[in-house]
Amino acid sequence: MNSSNLLSVVTFVYGFAAILYIAAWIFKKTFPGLLATWTALLGAVGNAAGIIMRWVESYTLGIGHAPLSNMYESLVFFSCTIVVIYLVIERTYKNRIIGAFVMPLVFLAIAYASLSPNINDRIQPLIPALKSNWLIAHVVTCFLGYAAFAIAFGISLMYLLARRKKKGKGYLLSQFPGPAFLDNLTHQMVTFGFLFLSIGIITGAVWANSAWGSYWSWDPKETWSLITWFIYATLLHARLMRGWNGKRVAYVSIIGFMAVLFTYFGVNLLPGLHSYG
């Protein structure tokens, strides 16, 4: 069994975990929830093992490099970071409903990597531009940021749903965490993501300066990461200094995540230097 096969299995494990989280939320039963947590944990272990296996495989192929060099590898790493951060949140706040909103995102990310015909899962040798120690630092920090923003997005959706509880609707919302809690958690995730997005942009700039001789060249991917940074900077200032909260922050967080997605996927449609994903 090679890493790609293992990661395909992990895709279905995550899919199963997502279904269990949603079932636990809808049917309000503890058992599917408990099973969901263990399934997600199993998926995360398999996911991490897949990444390590792929790393080892690249060395046996004689082109050894960290498995963070193309769209497939970054998506696999992305889903792993989301699950790990999510499981920490679940343990800290003892709430599984968030899983019903986060785990489907994880499933989509890794399913896109494993199943999409546009994405090549072969281990490829590194092109000269990617041969740098900055590769790991840059990709890991960027994806920690992206993962936090993805979770903030899920929680913001929950917030917008939770607000409807007041109007007396809802069997589904009866065990929802309070809007204040969700608002606060969104903020926490955004600050975490913002720190790592900043570090990701900075490591990218330092890397660009050592590879191309310029730390900033307004390449579309650079520019979109900066656009994302501007959006979340707006969120933080509006919340801390102008007292924005709740609905408006949730909307900005959703827009911010759209910018993250465009930085990640959309930019490949535009011409630029970042052509490897």
């Binding site: 656009i227 501007f230 959006i231 900077a233 707006t234 200032h237 509006a238 200094m241 102008r242 910018a259």
Partner: peptide
């Protein structure tokens, strides 16, 4: 408010 306007305009 100016900060918010400027950041969003730049974005």
């Amino acid at each position: 408010r100016l900060t918010v306007v400027l950041l969003l305009s730049l974005a």
